[in-house]
Amino acid sequence: MDRERLFTHISKLEADMNHMYEELQTLKELSVRLVEENVSLQMEKDNYEQLLAKEESEKAKSFKQNTLNNLYDEGFHVCSIHFGTHRHGEDCLFCQGFLQHRNN
């Protein structure tokens, strides 16, 4: 191999290596952006799941509260002293206090 071909070959290899290095840098930047986006999406997902769990918990609490209110409105005790027995049209201060406390 003559000197000129050798230098041409080395120059070509150097240019190829520079091009590969630039491609590697581009790939590295893209990877960083993807990791950052993934972290952001994971945080958003976690926040959404917490919000959803909170809403479901509030719905369950509301359902329980409405059930107790409905039982009392139908004429049954909801206080711990006489729970489930009929009130026979009379108001119960224990039930009313319990429901008022649960509503607050």
Rank of each mutant, 00 (worst) to 15 (best):
E29P: 06
D73M: 09
H9G: 06
D16K: 06
L27W: 10
Q65D: 03
E22R: 04
L34E: 04
D16S: 09
Q25A: 10
L24W: 08
N70M: 05
L6E: 01
C92T: 07
F98T: 13
H19Y: 10
Q96Y: 10
R102A: 15
F63V: 08
L68Y: 08
H19K: 14
N69K: 14
K61I: 08
E56G: 02
L71S: 07
E44D: 02
N103E: 15
E22P: 00
M20L: 10
A53Y: 12
L52M: 02
H82Y: 11
V78Y: 02
E55G: 06
L24F: 03
E58L: 12
N70Y: 03
L99F: 09
N66S: 15
R5P: 00
N69Y: 07
V39F: 07
T85W: 11
T67L: 11
L34T: 08
G97L: 09
M1R: 01
L52H: 08
K28I: 04
E36N: 08
L68F: 07
E4N: 08
E37P: 02
L41E: 07
Q42D: 13
E55Y: 08
N47P: 04
S11T: 02
N70P: 00
D91M: 14
Q25R: 13
E55L: 04
S80Q: 14
Y48N: 09
L34S: 04
M43F: 06
D2N: 13
N47L: 15
K45G: 04
Q25H: 13
N103S: 15
A60I: 00
M17A: 09
N103H: 15
F83Q: 04
L41Y: 05
L93F: 11
